[in-house]
Structures are given as structure tokens and as C-alpha cells.
Design a protein around this nucleic acid. Structure first.
Lengths: 235, 235
DNA sequence: AAGTGGTCTAGACCACGGT
DNA sequence: CCGTGGTCTAGACCACTTG
């Protein structure tokens, strides 16, 4: 066996996923059987199967016993992704997302930030306030806090825009996030930022995101204008 | 091979899960290796592995390469369960949940109900309005709609209380649900039901639940008092 | 060095669906 | 009937941790 950096089943998974995205396999179309895929990739059926299993769990493929494996509908595929990023959600609605950075500070963490990020009061954080827009309409005000130790060597732009992507490019492995969703009323300050009235309904989301070693790398407090945004979830 | 109703790996999964719940394997304790489990259940390692894989994906077990498979912490296990039922959430906060049924009708569906439940205007539904309490404090007003065809042979009580359990007992297989979460303000009527002020913040959740054959079996519109309830999610 | 989980093989039999 | 996915076997080698 040749020395591999990536397991065969991951390679097959990625290849098939790419082929579905490129439209080589159309929605609803039947893929080659597991036996044929095994032959194509020169692996055993169990290995090909492991790749297909992952794709089916991601909602990209749909298995039917006795019939075959099919490309799942786009609707199912998008649903399976679950709550996606702000950028993705706005884009999928045919609108143009944008972000205004109101502030960007290197500072000492407050008590909530210490607790959520599991750091000490002596540590430092980057704290930034942003407003997110869809077609120039303000949708969300958010405060993001990031341990400074993690981003010491990053430039500002790689933190303020697509921070997740930056982390991945530096070989950090993002694991999961916890969210708490609640409803409240807009404060005068927030209402002004979001061009709505004080006391209007706000959807509040606090999110803590973790790396694979269980380090909390970001704590975000978001406030969405109630009548301009809603979350879709599936379980 | 003996005729099986249940695959071996499911049987092994269920047995191990039960043993973890009973405390036969304590939190943090190492389980027998996959090879030992295979021997114990008289199956191949791949089959034992399939059971352990499922348990690891459920967050019940924690695999460590080169070390072993361990019982995950309760915290992880509970988080993995994701948003649980109202009853579970309230109970876990040490409060007593209760439900008041305001109305229970067999009636024609409105347009939203037809769309969400994928039925025709000629079909009938059961529609019920309920208020849910934690320690006698109103938390939520909800309207639930269920296709009548599905519950023709059920008595009222088996529908109004723990409907999901009733379905399972009648061999229906519940698959998944879709939810949309939003924030709005309380109407005068809802505020009265929930003993709060008109215009106070409300967390709105609409949920459509599906059986394994993709039949929608329940559409629920819930309105939670914003300052008495919040949702926890993990992805 | 010994044991663990991660990956993989080259087969096999089954129930189910009709591509 | 024939091909499909679902399940299963009895091995194997690897990289990793050290119970």
C-alpha cells in the first residue's frame, strides 16, 4: 500500500462531492452502484461504501435499498447544512450581504467573556462591534470576542472578515458551536444602529465556537431585527 | 446465521447504551477494546465497530486513538441531544411542567395548515390550543395541527398529552422536524394568555414534524415569553 | 513493546425494488 | 430475475498512546 496522507474513503468522498457540485451527477440522477464505485476508485466495496455513507449523512446523496444511490434534491441539501453563515443565508435570498465594522479593540475581557472563552482576567482579547446588512438594510448588530493569544500573528483584515476561513487556512480545526436563542426588545442604542424603533422585537443569539481541542475561540453576541430575519433549523 | 429481525450492530449499540445508562460503565471509564467487544458479542470487529461508531456519533462514547473508547461526560451527552422537549427542558431546570388545553377541535384546515401538512382543503385536522407552564408560570402559547386521518383511532388524551410517544407506540417512525425561529411582539390576546404585557418580546417557533415516509404529522406554532425562556442549540 | 482505534480487503448472504 | 443497498466475516497493516 502506498503511503497516504488522506484515507481513501475521504478522497472518494471529496471527489464525489465535487462531481455533484459541478453537476456531473444531476439532482435525482442515479450514481454508479457501490460495487462500480469500488472498481472505479480501485478499492473494496466497504471503502467506497464508507465514502457514500458520509455523503448520505450530509444529505448530499440519498440511498434507496434495492434501487440505488441518488443525488438528493438541492432543497434537502441546503436544509441539511442547517443554520449557515450570515453571508450564505443572505446570498441565498438573492440579496447582497455586507458588514460595517464599528469598533476593533485589543482590551481586557469582561466577566462574561472570561467565562464563555474560558480565559483569565489577565488575558487579552480582540473585541469588535459590527453591523451586518442585506442590500444596505441593517439586519444585525453583533459583538465578537476572540482570545488575543490565538490571533497574535493575524492581521486585522483576516480577523474582521471571514475569521473562520482564516483559522482553517492556519490549520486550526473548527469543531462545534453552542448557541442560545432568545427574544427581547431593542435598546435605544441598538435601535439606532439597526434603524428601527426602541422596544421593537429583537432575536438575540449568543454563540460560543470551539476548536477540536475544545478551546473556545470566539464568543459572539448577535441581535437581529425581529421582522427582518428568522432562523431555520432542522433536527 | 440465525434469522435476525434486528441487525447485530443495532443490538450491540442498544446493549452498550443501556449499560452506560445503568452506570455499568461509569463516566470517563474505558470500555473494552473493539476486539474484546467483538469477542463478547461473538461478531467480527467491523460489526462491533459499527455499533461503537454510532454511539460515538451520539456523543455517548468518546474514542481516543491509541488509547481506547471512553464513556463521554454527561454534559457532552446532554448537549448532543440538542433541543429537547418542553417537558424535559423545564424538568431539567428543577421546575414542574404542566399544560392547559384551551381548545380541541376537529375542523377544516386553513391555508397555512394545508401547505405545512401537505394536505388538501377537503381533509380534516385536529387543532388544539395549549398553554404550557413551568411551576404555574405561563411560558408558552401554542397551536398544534394534526391531520385527522392519522389519529382517527386515537382517543383525545393520547393526542393532547405526549403525542409523540403515542405515535411511537403505534409503530409510527418519527424522522425529523423543521423549525423556524423568529422574534416578534405579543398581541393583546397572547399577552393575556401568557400573563405578560401586550408588546412584550415573544420568541416564535414554528415546527413541522415528519414521519420516516416524509408525511408531515404535526404543525405547531409556539409563542414563548421572551424573558422567561431561551433555546439552547448545538451544531 | 503491547495494545488501541483507523483504515482496508475480498469475499459472502440477505431483503428489497424494478433504475 | 438480477442488481441494489444492508449486513457481516476474518483477517491485515498503520499510526498512535502508554491504559
Amino acid at each position: 500500500m502506498v503511503r497516504r496522507e488522506v484515507p481513501n474513503y475521504v478522497r472518494i468522498h471529496d471527489t464525489l462531492k465535487e462531481e455533484v457540485e459541478k453537476g456531473i451527477w444531476k439532482i435525482g440522477q442515479r450514481l454508479p452502484s457501490e460495487r462500480d464505485l469500488a472498481e472505479r476508485f480501485a478499492v473494496s466495496r466497504m471503502t467506497a461504501r464508507q465514502a457514500v455513507t458520509a455523503l448520505a449523512e450530509e444529505g448530499i446523496l440519498d440511498r434507496r435499498v434495492g434501487s440505488g444511490t441518488y443525488v438528493a434534491s438541492r432543497r434537502v441539501r441546503e436544509k441539511m447544512r442547517g443554520t449557515t453563515s450570515f453571508t450564505d443565508i443572505i446570498t441565498s435570498q438573492g440579496k447582497v450581504p455586507s458588514t460595517e465594522v464599528l469598533s476593533y479593540l485589543k482590551t481586557a475581557p469582561n466577566e462574561v467573556e472570561c467565562e464563555k472563552l474560558n480565559i483569565s482576567k489577565k488575558d487579552l482579547i480582540i473585541r469588535m462591534e459590527r453591523i451586518r446588512y442585506a442590500d444596505s438594510v441593517p439586519i444585525c448588530f453583533e459583538v465578537a470576542s476572540i482570545p488575543y493569544s490565538l490571533v497574535r500573528n493575524f492581521d486585522k483584515r483576516s480577523i474582521t472578515s471571514n475569521f473562520f476561513k482564516t483559522l482553517v487556512e492556519h490549520d486550526y480545526v473548527i469543531s462545534h458551536s453552542e448557541q442560545v436563542v432568545s427574544a427581547k426588545k431593542a435598546s435605544t442604542e441598538i435601535a439606532e444602529y439597526l434603524k428601527t424603533r426602541a422596544g421593537s422585537a429583537i432575536l438575540g443569539v449568543t454563540q460560543v465556537s470551539y476548536l477540536s481541542d475544545a478551546t473556545a475561540f470566539e464568543y459572539v453576541l448577535s441581535q437581529y431585527v425581529g421582522d427582518r430575519f428568522e432562523f431555520y433549523l432542522e433536527r
